[in-house]
C-alpha cells in the first residue's frame, strides 16, 4: 500500500501543479492539456505516454484497493467481537477514517474521470477545450461542494498515509518521526488547498 500510495501521491503533486496553470488563462491551459498528450513525442506515438501513465495509475489504484480490501478483511476477522464499552480512540481523526475515506476517494475518482476525462458527465463536454470544461463544472455549486469534500478526504488520507508509508517502508526513526509527521501534514494541506483553489476560484468568479 505504501509503494502504490506514494506513486499516486507523486502523480497528485504533478496534477495539482498542472491544474494551477489555469490561472495563466485559457490558451495556456488548453495548450498545456494538449501537451500532456504529446509527452514523449516523437519517440512515443501520440498519447502513448498518457496511456502508459494511465495504465500505471490504474494498476496502482487497483493494487492499493486490493491491499486495502485484504488488510481490512484480515483486520475485521482478527477482531470479530467489539467492546461493549465504546473504545475511546486515542489516534487522530485522519487515522480513524482511512478505510471510509479511501472508499470515498475511490468513488470520487470514478466521478472525476467521467467528468473531465471521458467528459460523460461534463456540461460543456468539448474534447480539447479543457479550460471551458473545467469552468462549466465548477460553476455549479454542488459540483464544487463534492470536490471540496473529496479533497478534504484526500488531505486526511495523505496526512495519515504519508507518515504510515514511512513506517511501513521502515524509513521512520525516532529522529525523523517529527519530520515525517510534519511533511505528511504539509503535503496534506498543500494538496487540499492546491486542488481546491481552482474550483473555489471558478465558483467565486475569479476564473471564467
Amino acid at each position: 500500500m505504501a509503494v502504490t500510495g506514494l506513486l499516486m501521491l507523486l502523480f497528485l503533486i504533478v496534477h495539482m501543479l498542472g491544474n494551477l496553470k489555469i490561472f495563466f488563462g485559457r490558451t495556456d491551459f488548453d495548450h498545456y492539456a494538449h501537451w500532456l498528450r504529446t509527452i514523449g513525442n516523437p519517440v512515443l506515438h501520440e498519447s502513448w505516454y498518457l496511456w502508459i501513465q494511465r495504465f500505471v495509475l490504474v494498476v496502482a489504484v487497483v493494487l492499493h484497493a486490493v491491499s486495502a480490501y485484504q488488510l481490512s478483511r484480515r483486520d475485521l476477522k482478527a477482531r470479530p467481537t467489539k467492546y461493549s464499552h465504546h473504545q475511546r480512540a486515542k489516534a487522530g481523526y485522519a487515522t480513524h477514517i482511512m478505510r471510509y475515506g479511501g472508499i470515498t476517494l475511490a468513488l470520487f475518482i470514478v466521478y472525476h474521470i467521467l467528468d473531465f476525462t471521458t467528459l460523460t458527465l461534463n456540461r460543456h463536454g468539448v474534447d480539447g477545450a479543457a479550460y471551458d470544461n473545467i469552468v462549466s463544472s465548477f460553476s455549479v455549486w454542488w459540483v464544487t461542494a463534492i470536490y471540496i469534500a473529496a479533497m478534504i478526504c484526500l488531505g486526511l488520507h495523505i496526512q495519515h498515509g504519508f507518515w504510515s508509508a514511512a513506517q511501513t517502508l521502515g524509513y521512520n526513526r525516532p529522529s525523523r518521526d517529527r519530520a515525517f509527521k510534519g511533511a505528511a501534514t504539509g503535503l496534506a494541506v498543500l494538496l487540499t488547498v492546491g486542488f481546491l483553489i481552482v474550483p473555489v476560484s471558478v465558483l467565486a468568479g475569479l476564473v471564467d
Binding site: 483486520d75 487515522t95 511501513t168
Partner: peptide, 14 residues
C-alpha cells in the same frame, strides 16, 4: 490470526 498493522498507534498508547 493477529490482524495487520495500519499504523493507528493505539498499541503504543495502551
Amino acid at each position: 490470526g493477529f490482524g495487520g498493522c495500519t499504523n493507528t498507534g493505539e498499541c503504543t498508547n495502551a
